[in-house]
Design a protein around this nucleic acid. Structure first.
Length: 866
RNA sequence: GGGCGUUUAGCUCAGUUGGUAGAGCGCCUCCCUUACAAGGAGGAUGUCGGGAGUUCGAGCCUCUCAACGCCCACCA
């Protein structure tokens, strides 16, 4: 096989593996921070170190790679920074599950040994997911690969923590936090998902201590009553006005608590009286602070009832669920349970393990968000950072403007240990980069929220805090951030706040938000539902380029979620196959050893001009759309051009009359245009093309742009007429069941200059035997094609049923008349003529004239037939 | 409670400043024409969710209603 020949069958996987290796072997993805070229950089949303590639990565990775490859071809110095996230809770959960299989917990191993085990696990897996990204054709710079827990990131994290602490933006305090009893850790507000659950509203009667009677409170969590420190009513609630200031008695334990007034209470809900449990409810915590009430803990970190003086002995040690049952039972026995009504309410769940969250009074570390949020709000409002699509800005701003402090400490082992040190004897706390005195100070046991380190990702990966680092200087701030809307708050918002605070620059200028991948029914894909599609399987089955193309094609500008099923990828596979075969044909039909991609204008036929004109338009629109992130549109346009223009027409025409220069030129340009989306197949074919090449791969070639020398719109329009004619003749054959084997002779009554040029095309593509331009020739028993101002007579002798032909022509006239009527109505409307833009009116007049002459021509034709 | 999205051909979805609707799949007819049957030629299919308004003109803009979905907040 010669070096310009393509294999007969397109074997995607073999080619893709070979091509990716070619790029890797030639270090094609390595960024040069000393380059003089304009920089373009993207940091990957770091996948979970223990994760495996899923469809979300496939989409996200494909889009990033498209932008990277496009900008590389625009001549920029590009860096796509790869790396993984240590994913605190998720990773620790995985390792703990492994241990559980051996009947062990992390406590059996101890912190040091557990961390060693987890590191082993992480090291073993951290290459896996990035290796899988390679299957996507990712052109990231693996020589710069980072990990959120590596030394550089750890130093960045420490510095950020210490600085924020010194600025008073990180503080330690005791507040109600979302506590996951399974993870045994605090989690942040956004890691808490709310699910509606059918519960009950229990109304409990609390006897007054000084007077007769009782006050009835409504609660969804009776088991927390042992931590009650007051009953609150609304100050204006006439029902309870007299009771404010007096005391009542907690049933079952007999503890005396006050009745207080607070605006927080909703008079219309429940009984209008609320039990206040500051240690186990965020709202009650606030009420408690306002009224200087004590905080009584009755539930522990495992979600079990404490054994203390406040909890009745029968309830001590029970789980939350058991305690609720038992409490209700005891209340019933004491006849203080007034009423039980079904009640639907929202229950907080841990994002990681779906365990019901326990709001718990706990000492944790927090980031004071408001001062940090302000510049982050301004950056988006001022346009320094733009979201695409724009609507996400509103979403982002709404969240930022109502931001609450961020609980960053986690009671885990896997992660960045908080750089706070406590004196072993005095308990004095020092927050510093290093332990001031390891003999006498012990480091805080807690680690930081995973998102704390990923929030620094755009600059911690660029050498920060060394602001003289070449990468930092060349590639920070990054250009575009590509991600799904589900992590705007978790990640994007944090990167913006941290980036602005520590580098004084927005970490990126554009945030491109795409939709989420869903299954064919629109359901989120998840392992537990069993509806996942593995991109690795798809790649094996259809090829990486097919996967990329299909995903891109389905990815709309509005960022709609993308519903997929296995079969949908046949679309991309078929397209890849088409590209392969068409290219194979072109390469087979080239005679020269080498082409220099110069076009000799005087040798161009109208067909050549037409395809160059089309290519030119496509180049223009594709560039525009790539620059404005209309990436799905790019896939649409490129598909349409190649299949419906280049293959269906130009290649067919070239079988009759070929211009090798143009054939090669268009294929070369097209492969370049498509390369960012389908990198392997375009590279593979391009490597086989006999071209004078000044770069080693298509990935380094120059992206095609609009070229005014190829503006041939009037010739292109003539060519469209030719296509119309061929289609009309084919249609006629189909309607009269004339087999291709029987040749037809035709008579053309107009536009001799144009049609005489294209007789060979009519010959081959419409199986026309001969063409005559003799207007006087009159032939009986003919069918007719009217194309614009030209009538084509097709003598059919006995093959034709005249009535059928009349009906056929009438049908056409009806259609044209319909359009004509609507245009005439418009033109008769004075308001249209005076108000509509001139070009719209002119276009309508032009179209009216066209329609009139075509209709006249058909009418004449019908007369001939009758 | 607040915000956002979706509703277009049987199915999945495009439709970029308002000018009179498209693709893929599926369906029907014909064709193994030597790049491709993962293909080629031809064909059928839509009061663009309902209603109202703005406009000469609305799938697109405004209002309203309905259904479905998502996000945020959360009343014990």
């Amino acid at each position: 096989m010669s070096n310009t020949e393509l294999e007969t069958t397109y074997n995607a996987r073999n080619i893709e593996k070979e091509i990716y290796k070619f790029w890797e072997d030639n270090n094609c993805f390595e960024a040069d921070s000393n380059s003089k070229k304009e920089p373009y950089s993207i940091v990957i949303p770091p996948p979970n170190v223990t994760g495996v590639l899923h469809m979300g990565h496939a989409l996200d990775g494909t889009l990033q790679d498209i932008l990277i490859r496009y900008n590389r071809m625009l001549g920029k110095e590009v860096l796509w920074m790869p790396g993984c996230d240590h994913a605190g809770i998720a990773t620790q959960n995985v390792v703990e599950k492994q241990l559980a299989k051996e009947g062990k917990t992390r406590h059996d191993l101890g912190r040091e040994k557990f961390l060693a085990t987890t590191w082993d696990w992480a090291n073993e897996h951290k290459n896996r997911i990035l290796e899988q990204f390679k299957l996507l054709g990712a052109s990231f710079d693996l020589s710069r690969k980072r990990f959120t827990l590596d030394e550089g990131c750890s130093n960045a994290v420490k510095k950020v923590f210490v600085d924020l602490y010194n600025k008073g933006l990180i503080y330690k305090g005791t507040y109600i936090v979302n506590w996951c009893p399974r993870c045994q850790s605090a989690i942040s507000d956004i890691e808490t998902n709310y699910e509606t659950e059918d519960g009950h509203l229990w109304e409990i009667s609390y006897p007054l201590s000084d007077k007769m009677g009782a006050i009835v409170v409504a609660t969804t969590r009776p088991e927390t009553m042992f931590g009650d420190v007051a009953i609150a009513v609304h100050p204006d609630d006439y029902k309870y006005k007299d009771l404010i200031g007096s005391d009542c008695v907690l049933p079952l334990t007999g503890r005396k608590i006050p009745i207080i007034a607070d605006e927080y209470v909703d008079k219309t809900f429940g009984t209008g009286a609320v039990k206040i449990t500051p240690a186990h409810d965020p709202n009650d915590f606030e009420v408690g602070k306002r009224h200087n009430l004590p905080q009584i803990k009755v539930i522990d970190e495992k979600g079990c009832m404490l054994s203390n003086e406040y909890v009745p002995p029968q309830i001590q040690g029970l789980t939350r669920e058991e305690a609720r049952k038992k409490t209700v039972q005891m209340l019933e026995e004491h006849q203080v349970l007034v009423r039980i009504t079904p009640h639907v309410h929202n229950v907080g769940k841990c994002q990681r393990c779906n365990t019901t969250i326990e709001p718990l009074l706990s000492t944790q570390w927090f980031v004071k968000m408001e001062p940090l949020a302000k510049p982050a709000i301004d950056a988006v409002k001022s346009g320094a950072i733009k979201f695409i699509p724009e609507r996400w800005e509103k979403n982002y701003l709404m969240w930022m403007e109502n931001i609450r402090d961020w609980c960053i400490s986690r009671q885990l082992w896997w992660g960045h240990q908080i750089p706070a040190y406590y004196h072993n004897k005095t308990g004095e706390m020092v927050v510093a980069l290093k332990n001031p005195d390891p003999d006498n100070y012990t480091q805080d046991k807690d680690v930081l929220d995973t998102w704390f380190s990923s929030g620094l990702w755009p600059f911690e990966t660029m050498g920060w805090p060394d602001t003289n680092h070449p990468d930092y200087k060349k590639f920070y701030p990054t250009t575009t951030l590509v991600t799904g809307f589900d992590i705007i708050f978790f990640w994007v918002a944090r990167m913006i706040t941290m980036g602005l605070e520590f580098t004084k620059k927005p970490p990126f200028s554009t945030v491109y938000i795409h939709g989420l991948i869903r299954d064919e029914h629109g359901q989120k894909m998840s392992k537990s539902k069993g509806n996942t599609i593995d991109p690795v399987d798809l790649i094996e089955k259809y090829g990486c380029d097919a996967l990329r193309f299909t995903l891109t094609y389905l990815c709309t500008y509005g960022g709609q979620d993308i519903k997929i099923s296995d079969e949908k990828f046949e679309f991309g596979r078929n397209f890849a196959n088409k590209i392969w075969n068409a290219s194979r044909f072109v390469l087979m039909n080239l005679s020269a050893q080498e082409y220099d991609l110069k076009i000799e204008q005087d040798k161009l036929s109208i067909a050549d001009k037409w395809i160059l004109n089309e290519l030119n338009n496509v180049s223009k629109i594709v560039n525009e759309n790539l620059k404005t992130y209309r990436i799905g549109e790019v896939a649409n346009i490129l598909y349409e051009f190649f299949w419906n223009k280049y293959c269906d027409w130009y290649i067919e025409l070239s079988k009759i009359n070929k211009n090798e220069q143009v054939l090669v030129y268009v294929l070369d340009s097209y492969l370049k245009l498509l390369h960012p989306i389908m990198p392997h197949i375009t590279e593979a074919i391009w490597q086989k093309m006999p071209l004078k090449k000044d770069v080693i791969g298509i990935l380094n070639s120059k992206y095609p742009e609009y070229n005014s020398a190829f503006e041939f719109s009037s010739d292109a329009k003539k060519m469209e007429t030719v296509f119309e004619t061929i289609k009309a003749l084919r249609n006629l054959r189909a309607e009269f069941n004339i087999p291709l084997a029987s040749k037809i002779n035709i008579l053309i009554d107009n536009n001799e200059e144009l049609y005489s040029q294209i007789i060979p095309y009519l010959n081959r593509l419409a199986k026309v035997e001969s063409v005559s331009f003799d207007k006087n020739k009159n032939i009986e028993k003919s069918a007719y094609c009217v194309v614009g101002d030209t009538r084509i007579t097709v003598p059919l002798a006995d093959l034709i049923d005249l009535n059928q032909e009349i009906a056929r022509q009438k049908k056409k006239i009806d259609k044209l008349n319909q359009e004509l009527n609507s245009i005439e109505a418009r033109l008769k409307n004075e308001k249209f003529v005076s108000n509509a833009p001139k070009d719209v009116v002119d276009k309508a007049i032009e179209r009216k004239n066209e329609l009139n002459s075509e209709i006249n021509l058909i009418n004449e034709t019908i007369k001939k037939l009758s």
